[in-house]
Design a protein around this nucleic acid. Structure first.
Lengths: 230, 230
DNA sequence: GATCTCATGTTTGTGAATTAACAATTTAAC
DNA sequence: GTTAAATTGTTAATTCACAAACATGAGATC
């Protein structure tokens, strides 16, 4: 066991690689090249080789990468050989959709508990997941040894619920609210801001030179503003 | 009207700033400092000042920023003064949740049409949005002058539907499938990969030195791997 | 009105991420 | 066996993002 430094940007791409490797495996492909992978996951082939090289030599020069080898490696690296249980807090429309979302199939992640403040739905089971009242949060997370939660409560409740989660010992929060949560340093928050994503997309469309050479990889946008230069 | 170069990273933060400015406005606050903004949106205050400075001087030294001025500026910059209509393709669980998602309130974005291949639901109205059959896609997008769509179809249909969208003249796609779509250069795709987000979160939790000083801003992770050094 | 405080705007340094380019090495073909 | 084609692993250069630090200026206070 030795420690290897993996850049953040690389780490974020690993699941992407892993998923496509699974696809290749199912298609019974034996080998794959960085060029081929690049086409599928839309990441520069040099970046892929760079990424893989952080883990040491996984491929063969002149040949490519062995799909099974890679897959096994990623399976271990991403801890895909054991099931990870997570909880979901806030069973509204989005929460409900996520309960149905198939995390398990490709990612061996399971939502094994959900929580809500609405007594109408607590005590029921939705999409195979039991909905508990908020009062049972601490106990259930403890019993089920869950320290990762998906947060899909309304914005006004977000920080308050977050505090509960932190006190319950949660280490990671996938935050679907549009607030930036305050958490202690030992808790990690991953933000998924849906309105923001859409807004950003629209912004880019409005301000990129869309007709000419819009170059996926451009790193700055051109913006028209009125300037008061007297 | 003059052109200003805005870094991509800055552009992505603009909606974030805008949202909090709205909040301040509602709370009838008159001025705001970069430090205060920093606390709320969790972005370094120097970065905020840097971001704002791309647009020219918007604040006053020793005073801060005038909330109304900033808000008006962002409203124009982000085109929040006019409503943007978008379409949604694939009314499954996630699609349904997004139909209910309140893009409109803070972002003046409206989903004004949805499409699905299931004849059971086409022709109905869900959450105030009419569901059309796929066959009407081209015509409706044209009639309603929509060129931005949210893609929430099952993975296997993703590329095929994307081709339809591209042919219908769509310029931007918010992609919720876990495939990386192939599109021509003049079409922009913004990926929101839910399984990926969760997976990444788990990876970081597993590989960061969580107990010591986990430093939100660390840029690399430490990974344990078995190395075959004979 | 002089001074002090506050907070912006900008310069600058640092570190990260990407990608082009090339050398090394293997496979395959003839 | 020799040569050609393919493809990795790595170096190097560029670009980008961030944040510390400083200088400038506005307003408040005495």
């Amino acid at each position: 066991m030795s420690e290897i430094k993996i850049p953040k940007a690389t780490a974020k791409r690993l699941p992407l690689y892993y998923r496509y490797l699974n696809f290749l495996h199912d298609a019974e492909k034996k080998k794959v090249s960085s060029t081929e992978l690049s086409e599928a996951v839309k990441v520069d082939s040099a970046t892929i080789r760079r990424d893989f090289s952080y883990f040491g030599a996984l491929g063969k020069r002149g040949y490519g990468y062995d799909v099974n080898d890679l897959l096994n490696f990623f399976k271990k690296t991403l801890n895909q050989d054991r099931l990870t249980n997570v909880a979901l807090v806030g069973v509204g429309n989005l929460g409900h959709a996520l309960l149905n979302y198939n995390f398990r199939q490709t990612n061996s992640i399971r939502i094994s508990a959900a929580f809500d403040s609405d007594p109408e739905i607590t005590g029921t089971i939705q999409s195979g997941v039991p909905i508990y009242p908020m009062a049972e949060l601490v106990q259930q997370l403890k019993d089920q040894q869950i320290d990762i939660t998906i947060l899909t409560v309304p914005n006004p409740a977000a920080q308050e619920v977050t505090n509960l989660l932190v006190n319950a010992g949660v280490r990671g929060i996938l935050n679907f609210t549009s607030l930036r949560l305050s958490v202690p340093d030992n808790v990690r928050v991953q933000n998924v801001d849906l309105a923001n994503e859409l807004q950003t997309l629209i912004y880019f469309l409005d301000h990129y030179d869309a007709q000419l050479k819009p170059a996926e990889n451009a790193d700055s946008v051109t913006l028209d503003v009125k300037t008061d230069n007297k």
